[in-house]
Design a protein around this nucleic acid. Sequence first.
DNA 1: CATATTATTGAAATTGAATTTCATTTTCTT
DNA 2: AAGAAAATGAAATTCAATTTCAATAATATG
Lengths: 155, 155
Amino acid sequence: MKKTAGREPAVSKKISEKKEQIRLHLKQKGFKATRQRDIIAGEFLRSGEHVTAEDLYKNISRKHDDIGFTTVYRTLKLLSRSGLATERVFADQLTRYEPISSESHHDHLICLKCGAITEFENLKMERLQEKIADEFGFHIVTHKMEFYGYCRACR
Amino acid sequence: MKKTAGREPAVSKKISEKKEQIRLHLKQKGFKATRQRDIIAGEFLRSGEHVTAEDLYKNISRKHDDIGFTTVYRTLKLLSRSGLATERVFADQLTRYEPISSESHHDHLICLKCGAITEFENLKMERLQEKIADEFGFHIVTHKMEFYGYCRACR
DNA sequence: CATATTATTGAAATTGAATTTCATTTTCTT
DNA sequence: AAGAAAATGAAATTCAATTTCAATAATATG
Ligand SMILES: [Mn+2]
Ligand SMILES: [Mn+2]
Ligand SMILES: [Zn+2]
Ligand SMILES: [Zn+2]
């Protein structure tokens, strides 16, 4: 008995909402809804975060050996353009994607030993950044802040 | 009359000190002092900051068409290993090098329109970063912080 | 439902920066 | 001066990212 009786878990709900958002974006831009896009978006939205196109491709191709890397790659780009994913490049220079969650902005702590990526959000920090930029007459559009070091488990 | 009579300007002094530092590093590691390394290091140390290997190669090859790109590339790596340069990768994903100045650490404001790179240092920020990391039991080794937006001239 | 139109797919090719290879040259040591 | 070891530079290689293109699938229209 694997099927969930009664109401769906919160995660599934969010995923269907997001899939709806993709469909809207596609229709609006004159693009098409395809089986591949559905599968890829579904797997991505439910996947662990910070995946590379390669990562996701490997996961998906286990079950769907007819879906090619290029389509996974292009779908991740599409999700980014649709406002459902962000591209991130950390020190290893690989492009990673993460679903955009309602909890908008966050930055990252990256462990040099185990590779764990921890997310954080700090309002004081964001304010201080604005203040610094102001001093230079600089208007911030985006920022990148990453800490590299050793996580609790690794140090 | 281009030659400076009397004492040398501060910049030149620093450069000769740095060149001495390279020579020490080379000898210590059993490496050799070459004409190319001398020219490349000299040009780099006196160059504008945040240059790519390609940038520096183009500058140098105007006067020295016998110095190849590979050697420029390798010398920048060598300078980095010797503690005289740092590698930086901004949003365009190109590896840039900057001389390490006595004023150690700084972060960057990068203009999305004109590409200007402004440096800043903020002690309060650094302290806050440590504080945030502490909350996660994380020990910071390095960090990356960049603001992307519009500089005073461009906005 | 058939067909036309247009976008999508996926394998393969291309790009471009970074890095390595290797034959030749240069430096440094005896 | 001769030998040992490292450096040089052109060319080759790597590898993720991106593009190309012929075949296929999705939608719109009648
Ligand atoms: Mn994240
Ligand atoms: Mn700098
Ligand atoms: Zn760790
Ligand atoms: Zn500007």
